[in-house]
Write a protein that binds this DNA or RNA. Structure first.
Lengths: 169, 169
DNA sequence: GTCTGCATACTCGGATAAGAGCTGTCCGAGTAGCTTAGG
DNA sequence: CCTAAGCTACTCGGACAGCTCTTATCCGAGTATGCAGAC
Protein backbone atom coordinates (compact mmCIF):
# COMPACT_ATOMS: atom_id res chain seq x y z
CA UNK A 1 0.00 0.00 0.00
CA UNK A 2 1.98 2.88 -1.34
CA UNK A 3 0.78 6.05 -2.99
CA UNK A 4 1.90 6.68 -6.55
CA UNK A 5 4.72 9.13 -6.96
CA UNK A 6 2.44 10.81 -9.47
CA UNK A 7 0.23 12.02 -6.63
CA UNK A 8 3.07 13.99 -5.13
CA UNK A 9 4.00 15.43 -8.49
CA UNK A 10 0.41 16.34 -9.29
CA UNK A 11 -0.12 18.13 -6.00
CA UNK A 12 2.98 20.28 -6.31
CA UNK A 13 2.37 20.97 -9.98
CA UNK A 14 -1.19 22.11 -9.34
CA UNK A 15 0.09 24.38 -6.60
CA UNK A 16 2.68 25.87 -8.93
CA UNK A 17 0.08 26.39 -11.64
CA UNK A 18 -2.14 28.19 -9.16
CA UNK A 19 0.64 30.72 -8.64
CA UNK A 20 1.27 31.29 -12.33
CA UNK A 21 -2.23 32.34 -13.21
CA UNK A 22 -1.12 34.64 -16.00
CA UNK A 23 -3.75 32.95 -18.10
CA UNK A 24 -0.70 31.51 -19.77
CA UNK A 25 -0.36 27.77 -20.27
CA UNK A 26 2.75 25.97 -19.05
CA UNK A 27 4.19 23.08 -21.02
CA UNK A 28 5.03 19.67 -19.63
CA UNK A 29 8.70 20.42 -20.27
CA UNK A 30 8.64 23.51 -18.07
CA UNK A 31 6.65 21.89 -15.29
CA UNK A 32 8.90 18.83 -15.32
CA UNK A 33 12.10 20.86 -15.36
CA UNK A 34 11.05 22.66 -12.20
CA UNK A 35 11.48 19.48 -10.16
CA UNK A 36 13.74 17.66 -12.60
CA UNK A 37 11.11 15.02 -13.31
CA UNK A 38 10.86 12.67 -16.31
CA UNK A 39 8.91 14.73 -18.79
CA UNK A 40 6.87 12.05 -20.52
CA UNK A 41 5.74 10.45 -17.30
CA UNK A 42 4.66 13.73 -15.76
CA UNK A 43 2.72 14.33 -18.95
CA UNK A 44 0.83 11.13 -18.22
CA UNK A 45 -0.22 12.48 -14.83
CA UNK A 46 -1.25 15.81 -16.33
CA UNK A 47 -3.43 13.93 -18.79
CA UNK A 48 -5.22 12.30 -15.88
CA UNK A 49 -5.76 15.67 -14.23
CA UNK A 50 -7.15 16.97 -17.50
CA UNK A 51 -9.56 14.06 -17.82
CA UNK A 52 -10.73 14.85 -14.30
CA UNK A 53 -11.46 18.43 -15.30
CA UNK A 54 -8.83 19.87 -12.98
CA UNK A 55 -6.54 21.13 -15.74
CA UNK A 56 -7.26 22.21 -19.28
CA UNK A 57 -4.83 21.52 -22.08
CA UNK A 58 -4.13 23.23 -25.37
CA UNK A 59 -1.92 21.64 -28.02
CA UNK A 60 0.40 23.33 -30.44
CA UNK A 61 2.84 26.21 -29.99
CA UNK A 62 2.15 28.40 -26.96
CA UNK A 63 0.12 25.45 -25.68
CA UNK A 64 0.38 23.55 -22.41
CA UNK A 65 -1.66 23.15 -19.26
CA UNK A 66 -3.42 25.60 -17.01
CA UNK A 67 -5.54 25.25 -13.93
CA UNK A 68 -9.17 24.93 -14.95
CA UNK A 69 -10.85 25.07 -11.57
CA UNK A 70 -11.16 27.58 -8.78
CA UNK A 71 -8.55 26.62 -6.12
CA UNK A 72 -11.22 27.21 -3.48
CA UNK A 73 -13.28 24.45 -5.05
CA UNK A 74 -10.39 22.03 -5.60
CA UNK A 75 -9.66 19.67 -2.71
CA UNK A 76 -6.58 17.53 -2.25
CA UNK A 77 -8.86 14.51 -2.47
CA UNK A 78 -9.89 15.54 -5.98
CA UNK A 79 -6.27 15.48 -7.08
CA UNK A 80 -5.44 12.21 -5.34
CA UNK A 81 -8.46 10.46 -6.84
CA UNK A 82 -7.70 11.85 -10.28
CA UNK A 83 -4.26 10.21 -10.21
CA UNK A 84 -4.88 7.05 -8.22
CA UNK A 85 -8.19 6.26 -9.83
CA UNK A 86 -9.83 4.12 -7.22
CA UNK A 87 -8.82 4.39 -3.59
CA UNK A 88 -8.11 1.54 -1.18
CA UNK A 89 -11.45 -0.22 -1.17
CA UNK A 90 -11.75 -2.78 1.57
CA UNK A 91 -14.64 -5.22 1.40
CA UNK A 92 -15.13 -8.67 2.87
CA UNK A 93 -17.73 -9.77 0.38
CA UNK A 94 -16.03 -12.74 -1.16
CA UNK A 95 -14.45 -13.82 2.07
CA UNK A 96 -17.60 -14.12 4.14
CA UNK A 97 -19.64 -15.34 1.20
CA UNK A 98 -17.26 -18.30 0.87
CA UNK A 99 -17.27 -19.02 4.60
CA UNK A 100 -19.67 -21.30 6.46
CA UNK A 101 -23.17 -19.89 6.37
CA UNK A 102 -22.16 -17.58 3.55
CA UNK A 103 -24.89 -16.19 1.36
CA UNK A 104 -24.00 -14.81 -2.06
CA UNK A 105 -27.06 -12.54 -2.01
CA UNK A 106 -25.92 -10.64 1.07
CA UNK A 107 -23.87 -7.47 0.74
CA UNK A 108 -21.24 -8.17 3.36
CA UNK A 109 -19.67 -4.74 2.91
CA UNK A 110 -22.68 -3.46 4.83
CA UNK A 111 -23.01 -6.24 7.41
CA UNK A 112 -19.40 -7.24 8.17
CA UNK A 113 -18.23 -5.46 11.30
CA UNK A 114 -14.59 -5.57 10.23
CA UNK A 115 -15.44 -4.16 6.84
CA UNK A 116 -17.30 -1.30 8.47
CA UNK A 117 -14.36 -0.53 10.76
CA UNK A 118 -12.01 -0.40 7.79
CA UNK A 119 -14.45 1.80 5.93
CA UNK A 120 -14.59 4.22 8.84
CA UNK A 121 -10.83 4.57 8.70
CA UNK A 122 -10.87 5.12 4.97
CA UNK A 123 -13.63 7.67 5.39
CA UNK A 124 -11.59 9.57 7.98
CA UNK A 125 -8.75 9.70 5.50
CA UNK A 126 -10.94 10.97 2.69
CA UNK A 127 -12.63 13.51 4.90
CA UNK A 128 -9.30 14.93 6.00
CA UNK A 129 -8.12 15.24 2.40
CA UNK A 130 -11.42 16.72 1.28
CA UNK A 131 -11.26 19.37 3.97
CA UNK A 132 -8.13 20.98 2.52
CA UNK A 133 -8.57 22.99 -0.64
CA UNK A 134 -5.70 24.00 -2.86
CA UNK A 135 -6.47 27.58 -1.85
CA UNK A 136 -5.98 26.65 1.81
CA UNK A 137 -2.59 25.18 1.01
CA UNK A 138 -1.64 28.23 -0.98
CA UNK A 139 -2.56 30.56 1.85
CA UNK A 140 -0.62 28.49 4.33
CA UNK A 141 2.49 28.46 2.18
CA UNK A 142 2.26 32.19 1.60
CA UNK A 143 2.03 32.75 5.34
CA UNK A 144 5.05 30.57 6.12
CA UNK A 145 7.20 31.36 3.08
CA UNK A 146 6.11 34.74 1.67
CA UNK A 147 8.74 34.76 -1.03
CA UNK A 148 7.71 31.44 -2.58
CA UNK A 149 4.98 32.65 -4.97
CA UNK A 150 7.16 35.38 -6.42
CA UNK A 151 10.17 33.08 -6.73
CA UNK A 152 8.10 30.47 -8.49
CA UNK A 153 6.64 32.98 -10.91
CA UNK A 154 10.11 34.34 -11.63
CA UNK A 155 11.50 30.87 -12.26
CA UNK A 156 8.83 30.12 -14.83
CA UNK A 157 9.47 33.40 -16.60
CA UNK A 158 13.14 32.57 -17.07
CA UNK A 159 12.14 29.05 -17.99
CA UNK A 160 10.00 30.47 -20.76
CA UNK A 161 12.99 32.45 -21.93
CA UNK A 162 15.16 29.34 -21.86
CA UNK A 163 12.40 27.21 -23.33
CA UNK A 164 14.57 25.94 -26.10
CA UNK A 165 17.12 24.55 -23.70
CA UNK A 166 14.52 22.87 -21.54
CA UNK A 167 12.99 21.19 -24.54
CA UNK A 168 16.28 19.46 -25.22
CA UNK A 169 16.11 17.48 -22.00
CA UNK B 1 -3.20 2.17 -3.80
CA UNK B 2 -4.87 -1.03 -2.85
CA UNK B 3 -4.69 -2.94 0.39
CA UNK B 4 -3.34 -6.48 0.22
CA UNK B 5 -5.90 -9.21 0.30
CA UNK B 6 -3.82 -10.63 3.10
CA UNK B 7 -4.99 -7.85 5.41
CA UNK B 8 -8.58 -8.95 5.05
CA UNK B 9 -7.65 -12.57 5.62
CA UNK B 10 -5.53 -11.71 8.64
CA UNK B 11 -8.26 -9.66 10.29
CA UNK B 12 -10.90 -12.35 9.95
CA UNK B 13 -8.53 -15.11 10.94
CA UNK B 14 -7.46 -13.29 14.09
CA UNK B 15 -11.12 -12.76 14.93
CA UNK B 16 -11.82 -16.46 14.48
CA UNK B 17 -8.83 -17.40 16.60
CA UNK B 18 -10.07 -15.11 19.36
CA UNK B 19 -13.25 -17.16 19.50
CA UNK B 20 -11.50 -20.51 19.60
CA UNK B 21 -9.40 -19.82 22.65
CA UNK B 22 -9.40 -23.39 23.80
CA UNK B 23 -5.69 -23.00 24.21
CA UNK B 24 -5.66 -25.26 21.20
CA UNK B 25 -3.64 -24.30 18.13
CA UNK B 26 -5.32 -24.24 14.73
CA UNK B 27 -3.44 -25.28 11.63
CA UNK B 28 -3.12 -23.26 8.46
CA UNK B 29 -5.16 -25.92 6.69
CA UNK B 30 -8.11 -25.48 9.05
CA UNK B 31 -7.97 -21.71 9.01
CA UNK B 32 -7.71 -21.63 5.23
CA UNK B 33 -10.54 -24.11 4.73
CA UNK B 34 -12.89 -21.90 6.71
CA UNK B 35 -12.88 -19.27 3.96
CA UNK B 36 -11.69 -21.55 1.16
CA UNK B 37 -8.40 -19.69 0.83
CA UNK B 38 -5.12 -20.87 -0.73
CA UNK B 39 -3.41 -22.61 2.15
CA UNK B 40 0.24 -21.80 1.45
CA UNK B 41 -0.42 -18.13 0.89
CA UNK B 42 -2.44 -17.74 4.05
CA UNK B 43 0.44 -19.42 5.83
CA UNK B 44 2.65 -16.60 4.62
CA UNK B 45 0.37 -14.03 6.23
CA UNK B 46 0.26 -16.00 9.46
CA UNK B 47 4.04 -16.01 9.49
CA UNK B 48 4.00 -12.22 9.31
CA UNK B 49 1.54 -12.07 12.20
CA UNK B 50 3.82 -14.37 14.17
CA UNK B 51 6.86 -12.23 13.50
CA UNK B 52 4.86 -9.24 14.77
CA UNK B 53 4.14 -11.11 18.00
CA UNK B 54 0.40 -11.26 17.35
CA UNK B 55 0.24 -15.03 16.91
CA UNK B 56 2.41 -17.78 18.28
CA UNK B 57 3.20 -20.86 16.23
CA UNK B 58 4.07 -24.40 17.19
CA UNK B 59 5.36 -26.90 14.63
CA UNK B 60 4.78 -30.60 14.48
CA UNK B 61 1.65 -32.68 15.06
CA UNK B 62 -1.04 -30.92 17.12
CA UNK B 63 0.75 -27.72 16.14
CA UNK B 64 -0.59 -24.61 14.48
CA UNK B 65 -1.26 -21.00 15.39
CA UNK B 66 -2.92 -19.39 18.37
CA UNK B 67 -3.56 -15.83 19.39
CA UNK B 68 -0.67 -14.64 21.50
CA UNK B 69 -1.97 -11.27 22.62
CA UNK B 70 -4.88 -10.00 24.66
CA UNK B 71 -7.60 -8.93 22.20
CA UNK B 72 -8.08 -5.82 24.31
CA UNK B 73 -4.49 -4.84 23.56
CA UNK B 74 -4.59 -5.74 19.87
CA UNK B 75 -5.71 -2.97 17.53
CA UNK B 76 -6.71 -3.31 13.90
CA UNK B 77 -3.74 -1.10 13.06
CA UNK B 78 -1.39 -3.66 14.58
CA UNK B 79 -2.71 -6.31 12.23
CA UNK B 80 -2.69 -4.07 9.16
CA UNK B 81 0.89 -2.97 9.80
CA UNK B 82 2.00 -6.55 10.44
CA UNK B 83 0.81 -7.57 6.97
CA UNK B 84 1.46 -4.45 4.93
CA UNK B 85 4.79 -3.69 6.51
CA UNK B 86 5.11 -0.01 5.86
CA UNK B 87 2.02 2.11 5.39
CA UNK B 88 1.45 4.75 2.73
CA UNK B 89 4.24 7.16 3.54
CA UNK B 90 3.96 10.44 1.72
CA UNK B 91 6.98 12.73 1.75
CA UNK B 92 8.07 15.49 -0.59
CA UNK B 93 11.73 15.33 0.31
CA UNK B 94 13.26 14.48 -3.02
CA UNK B 95 10.82 16.62 -4.94
CA UNK B 96 11.47 19.90 -3.17
CA UNK B 97 15.16 19.18 -2.72
CA UNK B 98 15.49 18.93 -6.52
CA UNK B 99 13.45 22.08 -7.13
CA UNK B 100 14.80 25.61 -7.36
CA UNK B 101 16.21 26.72 -4.03
CA UNK B 102 16.22 23.12 -2.85
CA UNK B 103 18.50 22.27 0.01
CA UNK B 104 19.51 18.65 0.61
CA UNK B 105 20.07 19.31 4.30
CA UNK B 106 16.46 20.35 4.93
CA UNK B 107 13.89 17.77 6.02
CA UNK B 108 11.05 18.74 3.72
CA UNK B 109 8.70 16.23 5.30
CA UNK B 110 8.53 18.69 8.18
CA UNK B 111 8.45 21.94 6.23
CA UNK B 112 6.41 21.12 3.12
CA UNK B 113 2.83 22.20 3.65
CA UNK B 114 1.46 19.61 1.23
CA UNK B 115 3.42 16.86 2.92
CA UNK B 116 1.97 17.88 6.25
CA UNK B 117 -1.56 17.87 4.90
CA UNK B 118 -1.07 14.36 3.53
CA UNK B 119 0.41 13.26 6.83
CA UNK B 120 -2.60 14.59 8.70
CA UNK B 121 -4.86 12.45 6.53
CA UNK B 122 -2.70 9.39 7.05
CA UNK B 123 -2.67 10.07 10.76
CA UNK B 124 -6.46 10.26 10.85
CA UNK B 125 -6.56 6.86 9.16
CA UNK B 126 -4.12 5.31 11.59
CA UNK B 127 -5.86 6.84 14.58
CA UNK B 128 -9.20 5.42 13.49
CA UNK B 129 -7.70 1.95 13.04
CA UNK B 130 -5.81 2.16 16.32
CA UNK B 131 -8.98 3.06 18.18
CA UNK B 132 -10.63 -0.29 17.43
CA UNK B 133 -9.33 -3.27 19.31
CA UNK B 134 -10.03 -6.83 18.29
CA UNK B 135 -12.04 -7.12 21.51
CA UNK B 136 -14.22 -4.20 20.39
CA UNK B 137 -14.91 -5.93 17.10
CA UNK B 138 -15.70 -9.17 18.87
CA UNK B 139 -18.18 -7.50 21.20
CA UNK B 140 -19.88 -5.74 18.33
CA UNK B 141 -20.23 -8.94 16.32
CA UNK B 142 -21.58 -10.80 19.35
CA UNK B 143 -24.16 -8.05 19.84
CA UNK B 144 -25.32 -8.10 16.22
CA UNK B 145 -24.98 -11.82 15.51
CA UNK B 146 -25.12 -13.71 18.82
CA UNK B 147 -24.87 -17.12 17.21
CA UNK B 148 -21.62 -16.44 15.37
CA UNK B 149 -19.09 -17.36 18.10
CA UNK B 150 -20.76 -20.68 18.82
CA UNK B 151 -21.14 -21.50 15.15
CA UNK B 152 -17.49 -20.73 14.52
CA UNK B 153 -16.34 -22.87 17.44
CA UNK B 154 -18.54 -25.71 16.25
CA UNK B 155 -17.21 -25.51 12.73
CA UNK B 156 -13.63 -25.78 13.91
CA UNK B 157 -14.49 -28.80 16.07
CA UNK B 158 -15.86 -30.69 13.09
CA UNK B 159 -12.91 -29.45 11.06
CA UNK B 160 -10.58 -31.03 13.57
CA UNK B 161 -12.52 -34.25 13.18
CA UNK B 162 -12.25 -34.04 9.39
CA UNK B 163 -8.67 -32.89 9.56
CA UNK B 164 -7.44 -35.56 7.28
CA UNK B 165 -9.75 -34.50 4.48
CA UNK B 166 -8.81 -30.84 4.83
CA UNK B 167 -5.15 -31.65 4.63
CA UNK B 168 -5.68 -33.15 1.19
CA UNK B 169 -6.74 -29.82 -0.29
C1' DG C 1 4.34 -54.17 32.93
C1' DT C 2 7.43 -50.34 32.13
C1' DC C 3 10.98 -47.81 29.95
C1' DT C 4 13.78 -46.50 26.03
C1' DG C 5 14.85 -45.79 21.34
C1' DC C 6 13.25 -45.21 16.71
C1' DA C 7 10.47 -44.52 12.75
C1' DT C 8 6.63 -41.83 11.12
C1' DA C 9 3.70 -38.30 9.93
C1' DC C 10 2.61 -33.72 10.61
C1' DT C 11 3.32 -28.53 10.75
C1' DC C 12 5.67 -24.37 10.18
C1' DG C 13 9.30 -21.67 7.60
C1' DG C 14 11.72 -19.81 3.99
C1' DA C 15 13.13 -20.14 -0.91
C1' DT C 16 11.18 -20.12 -5.49
C1' DA C 17 7.91 -18.85 -9.92
C1' DA C 18 3.86 -16.26 -12.21
C1' DG C 19 0.91 -12.15 -12.71
C1' DA C 20 -0.55 -7.31 -12.06
C1' DG C 21 0.30 -2.60 -11.59
C1' DC C 22 3.34 1.26 -11.31
C1' DT C 23 7.19 3.55 -13.71
C1' DG C 24 9.28 5.21 -17.73
C1' DT C 25 9.57 6.07 -22.93
C1' DC C 26 8.45 6.94 -27.70
C1' DC C 27 6.09 8.45 -31.84
C1' DG C 28 1.82 10.21 -34.22
C1' DA C 29 -2.38 13.75 -34.55
C1' DG C 30 -3.46 18.35 -34.38
C1' DT C 31 -2.63 23.37 -34.01
C1' DA C 32 -0.62 28.18 -33.80
C1' DG C 33 2.49 31.08 -35.87
C1' DC C 34 5.90 32.29 -39.37
C1' DT C 35 7.24 32.63 -44.24
C1' DT C 36 6.41 33.67 -48.79
C1' DA C 37 4.14 34.78 -52.88
C1' DG C 38 0.53 37.36 -55.05
C1' DG C 39 -2.60 41.37 -55.46
C1' DC D 1 1.91 47.62 -48.23
C1' DC D 2 -1.65 44.16 -47.24
C1' DT D 3 -3.64 39.56 -47.63
C1' DA D 4 -3.78 34.70 -47.92
C1' DA D 5 -2.04 30.16 -48.52
C1' DG D 6 1.30 26.87 -47.26
C1' DC D 7 4.86 25.21 -44.34
C1' DT D 8 7.25 24.56 -40.14
C1' DA D 9 7.79 23.61 -35.47
C1' DC D 10 5.74 22.73 -31.30
C1' DT D 11 2.57 20.40 -27.87
C1' DC D 12 -0.56 17.10 -26.21
C1' DG D 13 -2.33 12.30 -26.48
C1' DG D 14 -2.29 7.58 -26.47
C1' DA D 15 0.28 3.22 -27.54
C1' DC D 16 4.45 0.58 -26.23
C1' DA D 17 8.47 -1.72 -22.90
C1' DG D 18 10.91 -2.44 -18.11
C1' DC D 19 10.62 -3.23 -13.35
C1' DT D 20 8.91 -3.72 -8.67
C1' DC D 21 5.60 -5.67 -5.68
C1' DT D 22 1.71 -8.60 -4.76
C1' DT D 23 -0.05 -13.25 -5.39
C1' DA D 24 0.65 -18.05 -5.41
C1' DT D 25 3.24 -22.43 -4.75
C1' DC D 26 6.50 -25.96 -3.34
C1' DC D 27 9.84 -28.48 -0.64
C1' DG D 28 12.92 -28.90 3.47
C1' DA D 29 13.84 -28.40 8.88
C1' DG D 30 12.11 -29.54 13.15
C1' DT D 31 8.91 -31.83 16.50
C1' DA D 32 5.27 -34.59 18.98
C1' DT D 33 3.23 -38.98 18.58
C1' DG D 34 2.84 -43.86 18.32
C1' DC D 35 5.11 -48.33 18.00
C1' DA D 36 8.38 -51.91 18.85
C1' DG D 37 11.69 -54.11 21.48
C1' DA D 38 14.43 -54.80 25.64
C1' DC D 39 14.59 -55.10 30.68
Amino acid sequence: MELSKGVEWALHTCLNLSWIEGGEAKTTAELAAYYDLPQAYLNKQLQALTRAGILSSTPGPRGGFRLDRDPEQLSLLDIVVAIEGRVAAFACEHLLADGPGGDASVDYALTCVLSQAMSRAELAWRRELASSSLADIRREVEAKYPQTPGATRAWFLTARADGRRLARR
